[in-house]
Amino acid sequence: MASRALKRAGVSPELCQRLKRSKIESCKDLLSRTPFEVMHAAGISYQEALEMLESVSRVIAPSAITALELWKRQSDCCLSTSLPALDKVLRGGLPCGSITEVAGPSGCGKTQLCFMLSVVATLPKELGGLDRSVIYIDTESAFSADRLVEIAQSRYPDVFCVKEQVLQMAGRVHVFRELTCQDVLNRLERLEELIISSEAGLIILDSVASVVRKEFDTTLPGNLMHRSNLLGQEATALKYLAHQFNIPVVLTNQITTHTGHQGAAGEDCGGFVTAALGNTWSHSVNTRFIVQYIDSRHRQLLVAKSPVAPFAVLNYVINKEGLCMHDNDGEEVLYQGTDPSLQTIRVRTGLEMDTK
């Protein structure tokens, strides 16, 4: 990624300091300069400047990989969801090196699932975890340390029965509260060193839609394009981090209402609820879960998009342990549309269920 610090691209600390005086701190800064500018800023020969530019270019350029290498890498590492039925559908859990999105209405357990995954990531490998830390970016001020601990102790009572184990787990979840779009993007672009120093094995962004929808009124001229550009930058940064460190990235997304939808027979179906941020964003994520209401207590998780799993429907409830799946022989859910961004979502309005 072009925003990578020069020292992460193999440039010596001494040269980094010289270049910094000329405001050249990232790979992007360096590669936007001519060899003559680099030569004068770093105090090196023209040939050395050319070699530095070529070396940095090779570092940030995408490298080729064989299918065999990719298969070995992915088969060696998955993050268990701690939900056996879901892990079975996903062939082991959330794939490392890719982005998983959880979209749905408020109250369906998106943040609860993020807490569960945070706990699992810190567990020892022999217990199904990654034995790594977690980077948790909270854009809705919804993170609750008390709830994190409650889920850990309820879901793994034998592991977290000792206070020291609870403290160790909580100390490995690094929470950043970012409340503007630019703050989120800046945080993502500065995460490399923290991932290395903290040995992070999971990145969570809860939620990707919150700050974007608050800041951009897409009915105003230019805002839709500006929002799309920003989301594109965030997606690029997240994909880079997932691939570079071979770790799973989990995002939560909100819902929106589309109008004027027509059914297969051409009949007018009125408005329908679907994942927010549009069709282009839906193609930025590798795996998409949709969570929705069945009734006041029961919910459903739909695997709407996955490179390894078919469309699947799993029922669950939310309790002290977080999400719990028991009976998954529930009603059939038909896939609406040819794209996961068009999958309709059931929401709850008061005591009535909206199935549009």
Score class of each variant (00 low, 15 high):
334 L>K: 08
136 Y>I: 05
199 E>D: 12
26 S>K: 03
133 S>T: 10
283 H>M: 04
19 L>N: 04
320 K>H: 13
214 K>F: 11
268 D>I: 07
96 C>N: 05
221 P>G: 13
336 Q>D: 12
160 F>M: 05
251 L>N: 03
275 A>K: 01
79 L>R: 01
249 V>A: 08
165 Q>K: 15
122 T>K: 02
162 V>I: 08
174 H>F: 12
313 V>M: 04
155 R>K: 04
182 Q>H: 11
92 G>E: 01
18 R>A: 14
182 Q>S: 15
21 R>A: 15
232 G>R: 06
58 R>T: 05
248 P>N: 13
272 F>M: 14
183 D>Q: 14
334 L>Y: 03
40 H>E: 15
242 A>G: 07
74 Q>A: 14
289 F>V: 02
78 C>D: 07
186 N>I: 12
281 W>F: 14
8 R>S: 13
231 L>Y: 06
199 E>F: 00
249 V>I: 07
244 Q>R: 15
115 F>K: 02
102 V>L: 10
200 A>K: 02
255 I>S: 11
226 H>I: 09
120 V>N: 05
284 S>G: 13
24 I>R: 05
171 G>M: 10
27 C>D: 03
281 W>Y: 12
74 Q>I: 11
49 A>G: 08
206 D>S: 07
233 Q>R: 15
302 L>V: 13
300 Q>G: 07
57 S>M: 02
272 F>I: 08
9 A>N: 09
177 R>L: 11
203 I>T: 10
25 E>H: 00
26 S>C: 12
325 M>A: 08
54 E>M: 09
345 I>W: 02
12 S>Y: 01
257 T>G: 05
152 A>K: 00
67 A>D: 03
74 Q>H: 11
317 V>T: 15
22 S>V: 00
336 Q>A: 09
130 L>H: 04
78 C>I: 04
164 E>D: 14
204 I>Y: 04
224 L>H: 06
231 L>K: 01
258 H>M: 14
293 Y>D: 04
85 A>R: 05
237 A>L: 08
146 D>P: 04
341 S>I: 04
169 M>S: 06
91 R>D: 13
293 Y>V: 03
259 T>E: 13
204 I>A: 06
80 S>T: 10
117 L>H: 10
314 L>A: 07
348 R>C: 04
88 K>D: 15
236 T>I: 01
215 E>I: 06
228 S>R: 02
84 P>G: 12
89 V>S: 05
323 L>E: 07
216 F>T: 09
215 E>V: 12
261 H>D: 04
33 R>S: 14
113 L>I: 15
1 M>I: 05
40 H>G: 03
106 S>L: 09
200 A>H: 02
261 H>M: 08
258 H>D: 12
13 P>D: 12
319 N>K: 02
134 V>K: 07
32 S>I: 00
68 L>V: 15
182 Q>E: 15
50 L>E: 08
27 C>F: 03
287 T>D: 11
16 C>R: 04
236 T>L: 07
82 S>L: 00
255 I>H: 03
124 P>M: 01
16 C>F: 01
223 N>C: 15
350 G>N: 10
224 L>N: 02
327 D>V: 13
277 L>Y: 06
350 G>M: 08
